[in-house]
Amino acid sequence: MSLYPIFSIITVFLALTFVLLHLLASLSEVKKGNHTLGNQFLLIGSSLTTLSLFLYFFFSIVALSLWLIGCGLICYGAVMNGKNNKKFNKSHHLIRFVIDMLITILLYVSLYLR
């Protein structure tokens, strides 16, 4: 039996967890009335990456492109929020960026193994 389906499901699950965490964070801030540009970038980026995960098994190149754009918006929006709130924690943003890159590499490897 091939390990590809197991690897692919685990990768998509990790990516979906990452995306939904940022989507919930942005939605809760928007619900509180905090309509900053950083929160809007987080919301748009989370929506794009969620869409890319739904397209992942059908249109792989389009999904990977949407994933990269969405993750860039998530990272940029989070950095903007940190600087606007005067609570910029460099290590937090660095860890989130590394996790983002690891998931992106796993998605790319999963597409390559197809």
Rank of each mutant, 00 (worst) to 15 (best):
R96T: 03
K90I: 03
N81S: 08
H93D: 11
G82I: 03
L66N: 07
R96H: 09
F59D: 01
W67H: 10
L102K: 00
K87V: 08
W67E: 06
F88Y: 14
F57N: 13
L94G: 01
G82K: 07
G70V: 06
L66Y: 14
S60L: 06
M101R: 07
H93P: 14
M80F: 11
L73N: 13
I103A: 00
K87A: 13
H93A: 13
I61H: 09
I95P: 02
V79M: 11
I61S: 12
A78P: 04
N84E: 15
F97E: 00
L94W: 00
R96V: 02
I61Q: 10
N85M: 06
K90F: 04
N84C: 00
N81T: 02
A78G: 09
A78K: 09
Y56T: 07
W67G: 05
K90E: 06
C71M: 13
I74H: 09
G82Y: 08
K83S: 06
L55I: 05
C75K: 01
F58M: 00
I74S: 02
G70L: 12
L64W: 07
K83W: 05
L55Y: 14
S65V: 08
F88H: 04
A63W: 03
L55D: 09
W67I: 06
G70Q: 08
N85T: 13
A78E: 14
I69V: 15
H93E: 14
Y76R: 04
L68G: 06
F97L: 02
L55P: 07
L102H: 01
L55S: 13
Y56G: 03
L68F: 10
K87T: 09
L64E: 12
N89K: 12
N89H: 07
S91E: 08
K83M: 12
G70P: 11
I61A: 11
I95N: 03
I99E: 05
I99S: 03
I74L: 15
R96C: 01
C71F: 07
V62T: 10
F88T: 01
I99G: 01
D100Y: 05
Y76K: 04
L102Q: 00
I69P: 13
I99P: 03
L94N: 02
A63Y: 03
L55Q: 15
I74A: 03
N84W: 08
I61K: 12
S60Y: 10
S65Y: 06
I74N: 04
M80K: 14
A63R: 06
I99D: 04
R96W: 02
H93W: 15
G77H: 12
H92W: 04
L102R: 00
A63M: 02
L64C: 04
G77A: 12
I69K: 15
H92S: 10
S60N: 12
I95F: 12
I95M: 12
G70I: 07
V79G: 05
F59T: 01
V79Y: 10
V98I: 10
C75V: 06
L94F: 09
I61E: 11
F58G: 02
D100W: 06
S60V: 06
L73M: 15
L102W: 00
H93F: 15
Y76P: 02
C71I: 13
C71N: 15
I69D: 11
I103T: 00
K86L: 14
I103K: 01
S91L: 10
I95C: 05
V79W: 09
L102N: 02
N89P: 00
Y76M: 11
H92M: 05
N81V: 05
C75T: 06
